[in-house]
Amino acid sequence: MAKRGDIVIDIERCKGCGVCVPFCPTETIALGPEVNSKGYNYLVKVNDTCTGCTNCAVVCPDAVITVYREK
């Protein structure tokens, strides 16, 4: 079984571009309905299936995602 992971999203820096969303192999992330102080629909975690693969963080232009994976 894949290792479990978790992400922390810096919602104030997220610009809601959505570039990361198609690259999540487990569909853990999506653009949420809420907006941040700049008016962007920021990224949210929609389930707990994250494997800590870092795809989203690697492709994020604004480096808003921090990734953790169980050792």
Binding site: D6, G52, T54, I65, T66, Y68, R69
Partner: peptide, 15 residues
């Protein structure tokens, strides 16, 4: 699930 957000589990953060 126990909390995974611990420094020893960190795999990626902004440089």
């Amino acid at each position: 699930a126990e909390n995974l957000i611990k420094p020893e589990n960190l795999v990626y953060k902004k440089t």
